[in-house]
Design a protein around this nucleic acid. Structure first.
Lengths: 161, 161
DNA sequence: TATTGTTATACTCTATAACTATA
DNA sequence: TATAGTTATAGAGTATAACAATA
């Protein structure tokens, strides 16, 4: 029975106290918080069979109709080879189309279908509700401050040398 | 040649403006910021051949000598089946040992070796320098606030229903 | 019955490299 | 030469399911 340190002195049964070194690392906290938000995000969009990545592509194409696959890759910070399967899936479900472009026959202009637009609107709404839910522990000010800080961290690319 | 919207009006060649909907999502920002920090983290520990996960285990074992594999799994929020390979690797490198426990012959008490302790100290120092570097865009107050917010997000487990 | 460690297995995410057709 | 799209492939990371030994 007394499996050593399963629950701490306060009786908190949940996560068991973290060791100090990891506890104070922003990177580690970032990961854990991200995974927590991610899990809820997946649940939110599971009914519409959208993954985080297909959701991102659908939003991008809906808001920037005519965008190319390579520009999608650049905007999302992923490889363009990875975009192929994502567009394949969205296209297969009739949410997005690859439209040939006369001026440059290498690229496809990605266009949302009416169904794609509808799903996008619904999904964005659902995701916003999800964020409200999962970030309920933050005040409006805190949430804005968090967004700004995350933005700055992301944008601080290799110019620290 | 004018590949449409490669660089914006300001001439910023880097990331190309993000679409508004994704731009305002904390979850998306969390992911991007996390990946940015992760990349620098990996570079930091690459020389010592430590991955994020082996680093975490090494820290945990060094700070809580005698901890079991199951408790490591619980502390890190991963499956205990996944801990086996991590401990295998650390043990194979002589950084950690599996010590039989007389009182409960199912479990192993994980103990750091002297080499493991030394590497842990060095790695933690390197990681702290890495955090200072990658979070240089934040003030000390902001960094503390960020840590607190991430902690609260992580801890807000399914009690929002 | 429940838990520890373990193995086998598979799935997701993502990157790399190479190819083709265009430019 | 450089870029767009594509394919094949491989490597992390991680979860699930089952099992033996032990509690």
């Amino acid at each position: 029975m007394p499996t050593a340190a399963r629950k701490d002195a306060t009786g908190t049964a949940t996560t068991a106290a973290l060791p100090s070194s990891l506890d104070g690392l922003v990177g580690y906290r970032l990961k854990r918080a991200y995974l927590r938000v991610l899990a809820d995000f997946r649940d939110t969009l599971a009914g519409d069979a959208l993954s985080p990545r297909t959701f991102s592509v659908l939003v991008l194409v809906s808001e920037q109709p005519g965008i190319s696959q390579s520009d999608v890759a650049r905007a999302l910070g992923i490889e363009r080879s990875g975009v192929v399967a994502l567009v394949d899936e969205l296209a297969g479900r009739g949410l997005v189309r690859r439209v040939p472009r006369p001026d440059d026959r290498r690229t496809h202009a990605l266009q949302p279908t009416p169904a794609g637009r509808r799903l996008c609107t619904r999904a964005v709404d659902a995701v916003q509700a999800h964020e409200t839910r999962v970030l309920a522990v933050l005040s409006g000010e805190e949430r804005a401050a968090l967004l700004g800080m995350l933005r700055r961290i992301q944008d601080s690319d290799g110019n620290e040398a």
